[in-house]
């Protein structure tokens, strides 16, 4: 289970302070498919960053399976990201100098796993997302939808419990976007992954089992939401 207790995140931009999250309280059950919606700048991405250990709250606690992420130093947070979290970004964030298979295998390799095993696992995942024939291509040689599928495969290679997807279809056409969402749904229903999706699109949010709306850094109640 994932729990946020009174989480606040404040950024400093020059002399100004921006409150990205304001006393957020939230619980997410294991195996849930949760969509967090809201307009641009409402704090969705910040929330996902905190859940993934990519950032730390200014105050409050982020507790995952009973462990407060604030108690972790950088090494343990990194370990946490390696083993428990798979992240899918809006802009794909593939490493341009590596080909498709190497991008997928990368999280496995940086753990020190043997190359052969990493390549085999990467091949399996590329098969799963339907991109086996593109494995030796580089990012600039494939479409946006394909890049996002590669990113999904990469996110899965360490068999994480939690998948975080930040606007995964934001840079895709509707057909490609739909395919991505179907993949994410299958990850949740077939592989029992906890999927947390941030999106500004209500259509996209509709793929999730539960939806939450955010505005101005706060999570609105279901009664306050506009779905």
């Amino acid at each position: 289970m994932i729990k946020l207790v009174d989480v606040t995140k404040i950024y400093r931009q020059g002399t100004q302070q921006v409150t990205a999250l304001d006393r957020v309280n939230l619980e997410i059950q294991r195996g849930e498919f949760l969509a967090i919606t809201g307009p641009s700048g409402c704090g969705k991405s910040t929330l996902l960053n905190l859940l993934g250990g990519l950032d730390v709250p200014t105050s409050g606690r982020v507790i995952i399976e009973g462990v407060d992420l604030a108690d972790m130093d950088d090494v343990r947070l990194t370990q946490f990201r390696r083993e428990r979290v798979g992240i899918i970004f809006q802009f794909f964030n593939l490493i341009p100098i590596l080909d498709v298979r190497e991008n997928v295998a990368l999280p496995f390799l940086i753990r020190g796993m043997p190359t052969k095993e990493a390549n085999e696992r990467a091949t399996e995942l590329l098969q799963m997302v339907g991109l086996l024939d593109r494995q030796s291509h580089h990012a600039q040689d494939i479409s946006g939808g394909e890049m996002q599928r590669v990113a999904i495969a990469r996110a899965l290679i360490n068999d994480p419990d939690i998948i975080l997807a930040d606007e995964p279809t934001g840079n895709l056409d509707s057909t490609s976007g739909k395919k991505i969402l179907e993949v994410l749904s299958r990850l949740n229903t077939d592989l029992k992954k906890t999927v947390i999706l941030a999106t500004h699109s209500s259509d996209t949010a509709g793929f999730a089992g539960r939806q939450l709306m955010m505005r101005d850094g706060q999570v609105l109640t279901e009664a306050e939401g506009e779905y």
Partner: peptide, 16 residues
């Protein structure tokens, strides 16, 4: 910067 961020996001230690 972005590549380094991606590496860190997917679990690369600072030492690495």
């Amino acid at each position: 910067e972005r590549d380094i961020g991606i590496l860190r996001a997917i679990g690369t230690f600072k030492a690495q």
